[in-house]
């Protein structure tokens, strides 16, 4: 199958005072189109940093990240922003909805960057909310929704530009078991039915178990690629 995402020898070092702290060291990882990969590891192992680099909201100190044939490290800031809108749907642990906007307005937000009429934007946003089962909550503000609904709204926002890659950073980290189950079901639908490639960071073994593949990080390096049951592939 075609490689959708290729992380090649990526390293990331932060300067903390007088010292350089290596967060990622020579990470290489490939995802094919339609993959569903869970990224696990202890706190501080570099999971979120790797996710941010793949999403183009952080940059590697060394190495390349090629997504759909584009080396995102070579893109200028404005190009990277446009690339991110079109190619990546981001889902955060904290939902990251704008409190002043209703659900449908939050979902519509990335579409403002496209040359698209208002009616078309609204139609697509409502379609995305329908996919996540929240069309009836379109005009509600985040403060009027449960955590699970907020996260599903955030997933609809990640979905609305029809990106190939969905990147989720602990999407169930703030949810109760029932809501977490709904969100994981939704990610499964996006992967299995809509063909989205999903890369998800999680601490929850049950959530990781929903993925097709499990990747573990420890102290900034990958441990051997494991299958769904944790067996080496």
């Amino acid at each position: 199958m075609d490689s959708l995402l290729s992380v090649q020898e990526v390293s990331k070092t932060y300067r903390r005072g007088e010292h350089d702290v290596a967060v990622l060291s020579g990470i290489s990882l490939d995802l094919v189109a339609g993959d569903y990969v869970s990224l696990m590891g202890p706190s501080g192992s570099g999971k979120t940093t790797l996710l941010n680099i793949v999403a183009g909201i952080d940059s590697p100190t060394a190495g390349r990240v090629v997504v759909g044939g584009t080396d995102i490290a070579e893109l200028k800031d404005a190009e990277l922003a446009a690339w991110r809108t079109a190619n990546v749907g981001l889902v955060f642990q904290q939902y990251n909805l704008l409190p002043v906007l209703t659900a449908v307005e939050n979902v519509e937000l990335p579409l403002l960057l496209f040359d698209m009429k208002k009616a078309e934007r609204r139609r697509r946003a409502l379609d995305a909310l329908t996919i996540v089962g929240l069309a009836h909550r379109a005009d509600h503000y985040p403060r009027q929704m449960s955590g699970g609904e907020e996260q599903r709204t955030a997933i609809a926002r990640g979905l609305v530009t029809d990106p190939k890659l969905i990147i989720a950073d602990e999407p169930t980290g703030n949810l109760d078991a029932s809501s977490a189950g709904n969100v994981l079901d939704l990610l499964h639908v996006l992967n299995a039915d809509l063909g989205k490639t999903v890369l998800m960071v999680t601490h929850d073994p049950a959530a990781a178990g929903r993925a097709r593949r499990l990747v573990r990080l420890n102290k900034g390096t990958l441990v051997p690629d494991l299958g769904k049951e944790g067996r080496p592939q």
Partner: peptide, 16 residues
């Protein structure tokens, strides 16, 4: 500040 980060993560440029 956090909202600015959200907007930029969604693809809004600095100019936006």
């Amino acid at each position: 500040t956090r909202e600015v980060g959200i907007l930029r993560s969604l693809g809004l440029r600095r100019a936006h």
